[in-house]
């Protein structure tokens, strides 16, 4: 179990910045005339390891690059440079509605998301009742997801992610939107998941939940790891930096 679950080495990611908004052939032609491509460097060489069974919290101000980092780990983006190695099956929960199609019903979204996360059709079918139970959405499961409240979407997303037998859970600010009872259920599940040796990397703005579940905390500032260590130390430094401003 000593092998690392997530290994991130010198990750850099930059985006092309556009001021023109919607893309069209016309703007493309105008662009070609101007030849002005601005680059925004969001991650500037981030490195860290997460061991198997570890629970790591990621903190940092808005725009620090936390979501970008999690998207890179979830194979949504390709890094500009650097390497990412992941050992095990990963289940990402990136923000609300984690990849739901708004016009599909809850059940259809369970099928598609389950298959996207690597289950076979048969496996998804078998687990659907358990997922619906966990999300407590019995009355709404045949309605389109666009009719769901943000808390309901978060519940469904979390319920699917925890039923695909992932080894690594990646969570971006999702847990804050459920109600109290569901939040408790999630933390119970997370404790259970950790007891079985699962690995978690999550973003949270809530110092209490970071203290409650994380064994380690990484502070990301302006696309760089500012601090990486014990939860209490990092949170203290992070909060002190926040108070200064």
């Amino acid at each position: 179990m000593s092998k690392v679950a997530i290994s991130v080495r010198e990750i850099k990611k930059s985006f092309a910045l556009s001021h023109s908004g919607a893309a069209s052939l016309k703007t493309a032609l105008l662009w070609w005339k101007k030849k002005r491509i601005e680059k925004l460097e969001v991650l500037r060489g981030v490195s860290f390891d997460v061991s198997h069974g570890e629970c790591v919290a990621l903190v940092g101000r808005n725009g620090a690059g936390k979501s970008t980092l999690l998207s890179l780990l979830s194979n949504i983006y390709k890094p500009t440079s650097g390497s990412i190695e992941i050992d095990g099956k990963i289940a990402p929960l990136l923000e609300l509605g984690a990849g739901f199609h708004p016009d599909l019903t809850g059940l259809e979204n369970i099928l598609f998301n389950g298959m996207i996360l690597g289950l076979t059709r048969k496996e998804v079918m078998e687990r659907t009742p358990a997922i619906v139970d966990f999300a407590e959405l019995h009355n709404h499961i045949d309605s389109p997801v666009r009719t769901y409240s943000s808390g309901m979407q978060a519940r469904l997303g979390f319920a699917i992610a925890v039923h695909v037998d992932a080894d690594i859970l990646i969570v971006d600010e999702v847990l804050a939107v459920g109600d109290y009872a569901f939040e408790k259920k999630c933390y119970d599940y997370i404790a259970d998941f950790r007891a079985k040796g699962g690995t978690i990397l999550f973003v949270s703005h809530n110092p209490d939940s970071v203290r409650k579940v994380a064994d380690r905390c990484i502070w990301l500032a302006a696309g760089e790891v500012k601090m990486d260590g014990l939860v209490e130390d990092v949170l203290t430094a992070y909060q002190a930096a926040g108070d200064e401003r």
Binding site: S71, S74, N75, I76, P92, L94, E95, G97, A98, G99, F100, H101, P102, N113, I116, L117
Partner: peptide, 11 residues
């Protein structure tokens, strides 16, 4: 049309 999904999950 699926861009919101494409931004959140890999396939």
């Amino acid at each position: 049309a699926s861009l919101p999904v494409v931004k959140k999950v890999y396939f």
